[in-house]
Amino acid sequence: MSGRARLVVFVLGAAGLAVAFVFALGGMPPFGGSEHPYRDLAVAAALRHVTPNVVSSVNFDQRALDTLGEETILLGSVIGAAALLRLVGHEKERPERAGGRLPDAIGLGCYLLLPVTLLIGLDVVAHGHLTPGGGFQGGVVLATGLHLLYLAGRYRSLERLRPLAWYEFGEGASATAFVGVGLAGLAAGGSFLANVLPLGSFRELLSAGTVPVLNIVVGCAVATGAVVLLAQFLEQAIRITGGAGPGSSG
């Protein structure tokens, strides 16, 4: 199609959808209303399972199958990215050049922030069932925290902290562990992903049954997955040259 024809079709479609959507908004409940059938059920269910962070209870207990699916999406995306960005044809790793020198203040800042960030990440993962946060959030903090080393201009020390084979192994192991918790529920509680561990008492670190376990599993999965994912992009951007590779027009 010509650019003009494309624009006409697009504008007609978008306008039609917009009109329909405006019609639909007329039927929406008012903002900030107090009627929430699912919330009422979910809060009660979370309290029954001794999980003060209701969001975590929904994610890792009440609707844990969704979370398994989402973790598997991450696994699939990481494997897919690794497959699509693999070295082919004439692509070669080029010898590393010494990067430009950074101001010392930035480097020092990154080094100081690194342990703090990693600690925050671990804290967010470990207390997911008690306070906002959890495996997803903490995992991302851990993975991005590690890349402060790249910001500090030390790609080589990042690589030392990042034996990719082990991270890939961790990714597979944590997905398996998630399924394993589910199967344990099936064996002990009669249904897949049943919360079969002792529930403990409120505000204890060891409470809420399988919720903190799954938080840790997902934290591992997200941290390792994000590291492997970023590693593919970093390799492509920094180390790979030549070839009719991805991103080039061949």
Binding site: M1, R6, V9, G13, A14, A15, G16, L17, V19, A20
Partner: peptide, 15 residues
């Protein structure tokens, strides 16, 4: 092109 047709199809179905 494909995006334009996707939106047009969705709008057509809705209307």
């Amino acid at each position: 092109d494909y995006v334009a047709w996707l939106l047009a199809g969705a709008a057509g179905l809705a209307l």
